[in-house]
């Protein structure tokens, strides 16, 4: 008896607004949680890729492009190149003199872990020696990383405190 009365109160007064609001909030929370689970990607360094079994799952990897290794077949639209390990932590990058310096050091040091990348698609404008590549894709059983998406950053080409003529 009292239960039904309370229930009526809930639905007639401000309770219904509370319930409506909670429903919307629950929907938002559900959307966020489920979308995160469905789409979260580990962001790894080349070194972590070498040591971790990713079981062919989609991951994101950041590395420094080794210029000499870039091979592009415009007929088949396949692009392959090697990336060298760069630290994933921004603080570490800053401590080592900034992104440009870190990328340069990674490419010039042959003892750093490296990884071969294959990407099919047009060759991006910014792909060049010592660019930072951020790749989304999976590790094949052959030890080659198959990238579905390729983002590039060239720290030297954007904001530079001093123009290049000065440093020459």
């Amino acid at each position: 008896m009292t239960g039904s009365i309370n229930l009526r109160n809930v639905f007639s007064g401000r309770g219904k607004f509370l319930i409506g609001g909670l429903l919307i909030i629950a929907a938002v929370v559900y959307l966020i949680v489920s979308s995160t689970q469905a789409n979260a990607q580990y962001f790894l360094t080349v070194e972590e890729m070498a040591s971790k079994a990713t079981d062919g799952r989609d991951v994101r990897v950041s590395g420094a492009v080794v210029g000499d290794s870039i091979l592009y077949d415009p007929q088949a639209l396949t692009l392959s190149f090697t990336v060298a390990d760069v630290p994933g932590d921004n603080k570490v990058i800053e401590a080592q003199g900034g992104l440009a310096a870190v990328l340069h050091a990674a490419v010039s040091d042959p003892s750093r872990p490296r990884m071969k990348v294959v990407y099919s698609g047009p060759k991006p404008d910014l792909l060049r020696d010592e660019a930072q590549a951020i790749m989304t894709g999976h590790m094949g059983t052959d030890g080659v990383f198959y990238a579905d998406e390729l983002l590039l950053k060239c720290p030297t080409k954007y904001e530079e405190a001093v123009p290049s003529q000065v440093t020459k």
Binding site: L31, S35, T36, A38, N39, Q41, Y42, F43, G88
Partner: peptide
Amino acid sequence: GQKVTVGPPFYKRATGPL
């Protein structure tokens, strides 16, 4: 301790119904 990112599919899926 592991950096995990979400990309456009996350945003599309989560904001689409909203």
